[in-house]
Design a protein around this nucleic acid. Structure first.
Lengths: 224, 224
DNA sequence: CGAATGTTTGACTGGAGTCAATGAGGGTGG
DNA sequence: CCACCCTCATTGACTCCAGTCAAACATTCG
């Protein structure tokens, strides 16, 4: 965002919020009066099915905007939960409209944000629907690592990754056991390492090849 | 949209386009100079994987807006193809920005549209990832039928459905054969009928129950 | 009437799920 | 300081849902 946007955001900003790991931030179906930007920490977006199954929609990284659906549609399509301790920048939903009115371009920015999320979700849908387990997992790590690079939270091909194997399994529609066995294949091939809450990507392009994806450029907002 | 919006859209409108069935309308990765609204006919949104597999993202019904991602992000995340003959209302992408500037609320409308698509895609992701074949197919028919009702293209629990079983299979990440066998289970239970390009929904609530979903209200744009 | 396209069926296979037990660390309280 | 517990990762054995292969049917169309 531009400096003016940041200034606008500052006025819009209500305060900061620090939550512990495991804290629910937004609930599916709710109409939160507040929106958030992630400053520090990581989290999960997910939906629940009536039978208790969970679908992880995405991993939340610093810089991510939370609650946009509630802000736009009046209802969240998924829940958001903190996986680590998180620091959030809090905005007031009721001021979203005045924020847009102050500068029409901001409405465009919001639409752009929403489109980016939709774009990524389309990729995920394709993965869950069409890729095999090993392709899906390789794809997932490529995506995660590229996002971490764009966010600047990676170093030396490694990054903090505080999630559990069950989270990956629920993101890809796989069972925990099968996910574990598939990850160990990739580990035994020296393509990646995972110990504690850190992962190392040893061979990104090999992973991309397995995952049937490319290492294409991250998209930036087009100038109109 | 409000009458003023419609008027604004009219100025924005460039013309009408009629395409035959099978015609590609937008290509994944492209940056189309034009946006469309579907006036008549039906189509498909889909993505291709490098190995040739296809993921159907959604079915296109009258009223759907096409090309929003290209308009906002400069690149389509999926392709769009006409399944029947379609009539499209054509807009000029280069005027999208002036359209928003003329009335800030329009930026909000676009963001809303994008959020609605994202919401639906989250549901699809959950279906493909967590529902079994019969649950997924039941869910799909419920969604399709509810959309057709909202669009006003259904009558007597029946609607035009020009798609193939392969399209459903590709939308749900199932094989054609398994999709066929699962649909025939639902047909033999008298929950739905499908002959030619028409489907009849005989027991919507039973389908919803199987599909682990509810018949909840369609969302309308919130007044801010 | 062949050719093409899409739907149905049956037989068999296999990738992924389920069940269950064992390991490996990290807390914590006696 | 060390048993005990809790959570999560790992393994092995077995099962099953869904995929693959292949052939038979419909329909439509030139």
């Amino acid at each position: 965002m531009t400096p003016e946007d940041v200034a606008g955001m500052q006025r819009f900003k209500v305060g900061e919020l620090v939550v512990d790991s495991g804290t629910p931030i937004l609930m599916e179906g709710s109409n939160s009066p507040q929106l958030f930007t992630t400053l520090h920490g990581m989290g999960l977006r997910y939906r629940h099915l009536e039978n208790g199954e969970r679908q992880v929609i995405n991993f939340v990284f610093p810089g991510d905007f939370l609650g946009l659906q509630a802000g736009l549609m009046g209802e969240m399509g998924h829940s958001v939960e903190a996986t680590t301790k998180m620091t959030l920048c809090v905005f007031d939903r009721s001021e979203l409209w005045s924020f847009i009115k102050a500068d029409p371009e901001r409405g465009f920015e919001l639409a752009w944000l929403s489109a980016v999320e939709e774009h990524f979700m389309g990729e995920s849908l394709t993965t869950v629907g069409q890729r095999t387990a090993i392709q899906a997992i390789a794809w997932m790590f490529v995506r995660i690592y590229l996002r971490s690079e764009a966010t600047g939270i990676s170093e030396n091909n490694a990054m903090r990754f505080p999630f559990k194997q069950k989270d990956i399994a629920d993101a890809l529609g796989l069972s925990l056991v099968h996910t574990n066995k598939t990850i160990s294949i990739l580990k035994s091939r020296q393509l990646l390492g995972w110990s504690g809450d850190e992962i190392q990507i040893h061979d990104l392009s090999a992973l991309a090849k397995i995952g049937l994806t490319t290492l294409g450029k991250p998209k930036t907002r087009p100038i109109m």
